[in-house]
Design a protein around this nucleic acid. Structure first.
Length: 494
RNA sequence: GGGCCCAUAGCUCAGCCCGGUAGAGCAGGCGGCUCUUAACCGCAAGAUCAGGGGUUCGAAUCCCCUUGGGCCCGCCA
């Protein structure tokens, strides 16, 4: 897209700025005190009959001009602030000449203005402000997107998110909901006595998951550092340290391709809860998602998927055994006893192209994705995965070859991943070792300091993690993760 | 990594198949209009048709390359 600097529209608006300055009007003043949201004026209009003007004190509002409809000696201006739109009504009778002509000649859609006047309702019934004083608060040099169709260009919507926000109310509503959704998650964990903590983004080795890290370099240490790919291992160290309920909600980084459900940086929540196991965590997740679903339904009453969420997430959620579900939907038998090569061949038979060097658990996950995941439309806990899938989970107390783990699925999206956390330091070393032995590109890096921490004793605990962006997508029906992120990554322009 | 699609005025879109003077609406300019709300009426203006190369008498249109974006597949515990 061409630079707006070159446009004749910009030149004309610059000339208006000069005219304003010549007239002694500051085009970029410092503040606009005592303003109220447009909703306050709309509320005061509620008791007025069409054609009536309020008798009380004047109101002051401020916001962006969306449209200007001139009718000779009167004009309607649509002003919008965060609370919503409000029509301004200008009349020569009210403000006189030359003020009326001067204001209208140098105002454009997109300008930020303040207005003072009386709440009124037009004869057509539109809540309005009968303006006595108009103040330019910031002249817009660049013209705004088209007033009716808005900004459709997908690239510009991402590169200039501010234009998307200022022209698309549904986009503003979604991002507002996202922000309050995150706040609700924090409230939930705070109220359950979890302590929010911050752990390092930069470290010597990124572990706790199998993913490609971003690598950077520290001048001070003169060594390469990796950006975190998980929150898990630092948080478990805090369990060792005696913090019994901790959570972190933060950005993590994975140096991989992006698509509608993946971005190189995204928001993850992980929580660890001492002296509980993964069944306690199931109850916590049921409560959390039910609460989040109700909140989302309040926040986005215009979005059908959001409105349906509380019904869908009504506890209790379904529970299925990972192996039972896989064998049932695939028709395969004896999954747990099959060799790595047999599982690899079965996985490849489904059409997936997992690399030869993948750990055994990878093949099981591929089989599960292919045969079972499409069937999980209602919230469902998939429990007790084979050991090979999960190097950080505790072995199952009664099912040999399994770990105590659940994944929560809904609408085909993974909404939580939780374990009874492995706290046996020797078993942890073995499990890291099994990952490394597979020598694939995907593995959990050995974190020796973490193993040392376990040697001092970590209480039995359950832990959970979920992608905040994906949880928001699933509850609201947002189709692309980019629409949940204000500034998603874009290539730099040539 | 593979495949398909898209890029025309500040914005929203026609025009492209089938090559022949680049169009509309909104926004902006000028004029009119004191209850409109995608206001309305009249006049005039606004384009590196993403960029580069090729074919052709002639390219927005056909071909190739590049850039950016979108969708699908693969990969991403």
């Amino acid at each position: 897209m061409s630079d707006p600097e070159e446009s004749h529209l910009v030149q004309e608006r610059r000339q208006k700025v000069e005219r304003l300055r010549v007239r002694g009007v500051e085009p970029y003043p410092w503040n606009f005190p005592d303003r109220v949201p447009t909703s306050v004026v709309v509320e005061r209009c509620r008791s007025l009959t069409p054609g009536a003007t309020a008798s009380g004190p004047d109101a002051r509002v401020a916001g962006r001009l969306r449209t200007i409809r001139q009718h000779g000696r009167s004009a309607f201006l649509d002003l919008e602030d965060q609370a919503g739109p409000l029509q301004l009504f200008l009349r020569v009778d009210e403000i006189g000449e030359p003020a009326y002509s001067e204001w209208l000649s140098d105002l454009d859609p997109g300008d930020l203005v303040g207005a003072e006047g009386s709440p009124m309702v037009t004869r057509r019934g539109e809540p309005s402000l009968l303006v006595r004083q108009l103040t330019l608060l910031a002249k817009a040099i660049a013209p705004p997107p088209e007033k009716f169709h808005g900004l459709k260009d997908a690239e510009l919507r991402l590169r200039r998110r501010y234009l998307d926000l200022l022209s698309a109310p549904e986009s503003r509503a979604r991002f507002r909901a996202r922000s309050l959704f995150v706040r609700e998650i924090r409230h939930f964990f705070d109220e359950h006595d979890f302590l929010e903590v911050e752990t390092p983004v930069l470290g010597a080795v990124a572990s706790g998951a199998a993913a490609q890290p971003f690598v950077t370099h520290s001048s001070y240490l003169d060594e390469d550092l990796q950006l975190r790919i998980s929150l898990e291992l630092p948080l478990k160290r805090l369990l060792v340290g005696g913090l019994e309920r901790v959570y972190e909600l933060g950005r993590i980084f994975r140096n991989e391709d992006l698509d509608v459900t993946h971005l190189p940086e995204f928001s993850m929540l992980e929580a660890y809860w001492a002296y509980t196991d993964y069944t306690d965590m199931q109850r916590l997740m049921e409560a959390m998602y039910f609460r989040l679903a109700r909140r989302i339904a309040e926040l986005l009453p215009e979005v059908p998927t959001a409105v349906e969420a509380p019904t869908l997430f009504q506890p209790p959620f379904a529970v299925v055994d990972f192996v039972d579900a896989l064998e049932q939907y695939s028709g395969l038998h004896g999954i747990v006893d099959k060799s790595r090569d047999e599982l690899r061949d079965l996985a490849r038979a489904t059409g997936t192209t997992v690399p030869e060097a993948s750990p055994t658990g990878k093949f099981l996950e591929k089989l599960f994705e292919h045969y079972v995941e499409p069937h999980l439309t209602r919230p469902t806990f998939v429990v007790d995965h084979p050991v090979a899938t999960t190097p950080l989970a505790k072995r199952h107390r009664s099912k040999p070859g399994r770990v105590e783990r659940f994944e929560l699925y809904c609408r085909g999206v993974e909404l939580a991943n939780a374990y009874s956390e492995l706290n046996d330091p020797d078993d942890q070393v073995r499990r890291f070792g099994e990952q490394l032995a597979a020598k694939g590109t995907e593995f959990y890096a050995m974190d020796r300091d973490f193993v040392l921490a376990l040697q001092y004793g970590m209480p039995p605990a359950s832990g959970v993690g979920f992608g905040v962006d994906r949880a928001f997508m699933a509850l609201t029906g947002t189709p692309s993760i980019k629409e949940t992120i204000l500034f998603p990554p874009v290539r730099s322009q040539p």
